[in-house]
Amino acid sequence: MLASQVQKISGENPLACYQCGNCTGSCPMEFVMDYGPRRLIHLLQIGYDDEVLKSNTIWICASCYNCTYRCPRKISFTRMAFALKNIAMKKNIIPKKCKAFYETFLKHVLNYGRLNESLFINELVLKGGKDFSEIVRDINLGIKLWRKGKLKMKISKIDGVKDIVKLYNLTKDVIK
């Protein structure tokens, strides 16, 4: 069952939720979600696992922890969403833009130990992490940043990259 898998990864028990809706009411992103946090937890509780994993909710969650802070049951939807994203990614159920974002991010962490923001954004555009309209919209911004000298082309890489890769290999199969 997905709910118990979520609990195992996140330490949060979705079954403890009593559906008060405080999370959804507090969620800043609710207006673009398929299901609000409360409803997603409900789907988890009654075992609609496919709907949960295919919903855009978990990818939209901005990790602002507002729901976590206010939850009367002291359970964290934010952490559940992390766990759900772990599971969905393992099953390759992931929107295209998100996939590009997360893959590039992980690549940076594993290759350099850090995120090199300027390079990251370039790679993201190449990987299709941005819509064409967004690229057009953001082009002015890019020029401005360049002029201000904010874009940094020097790559920063840590000595312990090997260690990071080792840690990754140790944990990558924790989620099944």
Partner: peptide
Amino acid sequence: IRGKVANVTEKNGVLKLSVENTLENVV
């Protein structure tokens, strides 16, 4: 309304509440 008030904003004595109606799935 089955839900909990999650936000209160006040303007000129009028309160705007946002609350998820959990039976209707709308805020």
